[in-house]
Design a protein around this nucleic acid. Structure first.
Lengths: 215, 215
DNA sequence: GCACCGGATTGATCTATGTCAAGCCGATTT
DNA sequence: AAATCGGCTTGACATAGATCAATCCGGTGC
């Protein structure tokens, strides 16, 4: 029998509790990242800006060609973001797990069709916002603006490093880099996806792993 | 006889004119990027925040291991930013020409030692600011803050695409991608640098170019 | 129980790209 | 004019990693 999603038989009031809990999670997260306390006034706006969305395994948050109308905070689950080349091969550009954001920034802010697909690798509980709500929230919450700046900063630096890794590292070094920068991913995602993320074939990843483990 | 830098025999008043001209250049640039007009009040702060700096060909704006105290707007010239791996090989991560900014964001904002070197490929005229002046300017000029957001956005998207290119393109495709995204670079930088930037050997770049041209 | 399926592994090739070495060309220096 | 130098090209060879095909293994469903 198929596994039942833990929400399937939740009565409404329980649902609501979960939703409240997720919001608190997001607040804690913002406090942690910005190293400050979000005031209650701002928290109200935060609550208004986000809504709950579930995406089951193998379902999609975003399809290539459509406009990315969500910015999603992952409260539970795991996702991948990829584009598909002319030969129909998926290339994963980003993973996300609890505490990560998923979206196509470019599409989200400029409302242009996205070249990416975002798919759930596990059942996901998300807090999502839209471009309008987001703009609203930024007007009313300095904490949230600050969060945005810090995340921009971080993601810029992370992609910078990833570029370095891809242009100058061997297969083995890329794997080591991944183990050091995002060890969580190794247990969370199957190897063929990790290989795609690293720009390697699954076979090469398998062989490299074996080598590394033998030391 | 060595070429004389065009500034070598400038009297002070001419220097100052050049400096004023460069500031205007920066202002025009900000107006263009933010699609708005920077008010004169803000322009005063802008002028205060930046000073003039010349970096001759093969000289450095930043050395690996030192803290990046400048954010530089290139008014004239061309630069490269690279890191050096254990084997002593340079890997170029970024080029800059007129209208581009050079800095190590991470080092500049967090005042940590940089892993990068920034070197002039041609004689450069720069407008530079420091972290303190920058903070000051951001307090006083919404236009400048907006500029920062737009540039963050853009550079994030650009690095995203560059990652895609490096993990999924063949050598030939990488070259085509460069020709499409930054055709200026091809005339401006020697091929061995372009090769490093693309993560290819100079020989491979040479062969690929030949192939592409024959079509 | 059996068939099936999505991954992971392993071995045997194939190929794109790197590496090494030589020579060329145009610019610069002496 | 000769020597030097930086950058580019070309050829011969080496190799990391891709590709293809077979097998295996643990779960899932019938």
């Amino acid at each position: 029998m198929a596994l039942i999603n833990r929400y399937d038989y939740f009565p409404p009031y329980l649902w609501y509790c979960v939703f409240l809990g997720m919001q608190q999670l997001l607040r804690d997260y913002i406090n942690r990242v910005t190293s400050s306390i979000m005031p209650d006034e701002e928290y109200k706006f935060l609550v208004d800006a986000f809504s709950l969305k579930l995406v089951r395994k193998k379902k999609f948050l975003l399809h290539e060609g459509s406009i990315c109308t969500y910015m999603a905070f992952i409260a539970r689950g795991a996702m991948k973001q990829y584009f598909t080349d002319e030969k129909g091969i998926e290339h994963i550009v980003r993973f996300g797990i609890e505490g990560w954001w998923m979206s196509d920034r470019e599409s989200f802010v400029s409302l242009t069709p996205s070249r990416y697909t975002i798919e759930a690798v596990e059942d996901c509980d998300l807090l999502v916002t839209t471009p309008e709500k987001m703009a609203q929230l930024k007007k009313n919450s300095p904490s949230f603006v600050k969060l945005g700046q810090i995340l921009d900063e971080r993601s810029y630096i992370a992609s910078q490093k990833r570029i370095e890794a891809t242009i100058s590292y061997t297969a083995g070094e890329k794997v080591i880099y991944l183990m050091e920068s995002n060890p969580e991913f190794l247990h969370r995602f199957p190897q063929n996806m990790l290989a795609s993320y690293l720009g390697l074939s699954p076979e090469t990843l398998s062989r490299v792993r074996k080598q590394l483990l033998s030391k």
